[in-house]
């Protein structure tokens, strides 16, 4: 593991423990998740107890302790999307990807997550693939989206 890379990120924030979340999200952008030995290194460098670091990592939903897929699909279950049938969309994703919410497919291609609001309720029901929004979802769109993602590697 390239621990120097981690050290560099930490030094960028001048080893300040108050920038912990920024450091962690930068590391996660590098690895797509937070591996155990990396976290141990962070705790060592910032001189904070491992229990506290683990608490922070578990507190925020964006931090992941297990590898996530290439495409992270976030299905919005906020009030507006819920009314427009977001649960059906989520179930359709679950059926097609053969995984449950919060899980990752075996080939590390897709991770399925639920979120509470994406802030674009007029587009509901909304799903997000990595950083892009897909509005007004329905079962047909779910199928074509997944087909596109898995065949071309692009979307």
């Amino acid at each position: 593991m390239e621990l120097e890379k981690i050290d560099k990120i930490i030094e960028k924030y001048s080893s300040d423990s108050s920038s912990l979340t920024s450091i962690l999200s930068e590391i996660q952008a590098e690895y797509s998740f937070l591996p155990q030995d990396v976290l141990k290194r962070v705790a060592e460098k910032l001189e904070i107890p491992m229990t506290q670091l683990f608490g922070v990592v578990n507190f925020y939903k964006i931090f992941k302790l297990e590898p996530s897929g290439k495409y992270i699909i976030r299905v919005c279950l906020g009030t507006a999307c819920h009314v427009k049938g977001a649960h059906g969309i989520l179930e359709e994703f679950e059926r097609k990807l053969k995984i449950r919410v919060g899980e990752t497919t075996k080939d590390l291609a897709f991770t399925l997550e639920k979120v509470n609001c994406l802030g674009c309720c007029s587009l509901g029901p909304v799903a997000m693939v990595n950083d892009d929004h897909c509005g007004q979802m329905n079962a047909v769109k779910v199928n074509s989206l997944l087909k596109r993602l898995s065949s071309s590697g692009k979307y």
Binding site: P49, M50, T51, Q52, F54, G55, N58, F59
Partner: peptide, 9 residues
């Protein structure tokens, strides 16, 4: 020691 801590919310 600090071997245990809270997680989650």
């Amino acid at each position: 020691s600090g071997a245990i801590g809270f997680i989650g919310r």
